[in-house]
């Protein structure tokens, strides 16, 4: 399953809190997609996911907009 979480315009660290809650209700193997225009949020999510051991890919889809894809590989 692929989930999309709306974090547009939200300041840090609300996106990370929302992702933590969302990942909890997802099954292993599910993918979470997030989009943000906040540079610090994108960076914070990448550092956080790496620490949790979730694979994360970051891409710039437009000037100053980041799309993040997190795969839930464990609980």
């Amino acid at each position: 399953m692929e989930y999309y979480l709306d974090i547009w315009g939200e300041m840090c660290p609300i996106p990370i809190i929302k992702s933590q809650r969302q990942l909890k209700v997802m099954a292993i193997g599910d993918i979470l997609v997030l989009e943000t225009e906040h540079s610090c949020t994108a960076r914070g999510l990448v550092v956080w996911a790496q620490k949790q051991g979730y694979p994360i890919s970051e891409s710039e889809v437009a000037a100053g907009i980041w799309r993040l894809t997190i795969t839930k590989v464990h609980d």
Binding site: C12, P13, I16, I17, Q20, S39, C40, R43, G44, V47, W48, K51
Partner: peptide, 22 residues
């Protein structure tokens, strides 16, 4: 500050809210 995404607020707040201390 911009390039390293350095943030004094996050240094104090993230340990409380997300458990990150990077």
């Amino acid at each position: 500050l911009e390039k390293s995404r350095f943030c004094f607020v996050a240094a104090f707040r993230d340990p409380i809210l997300t458990g990150m201390t990077a």
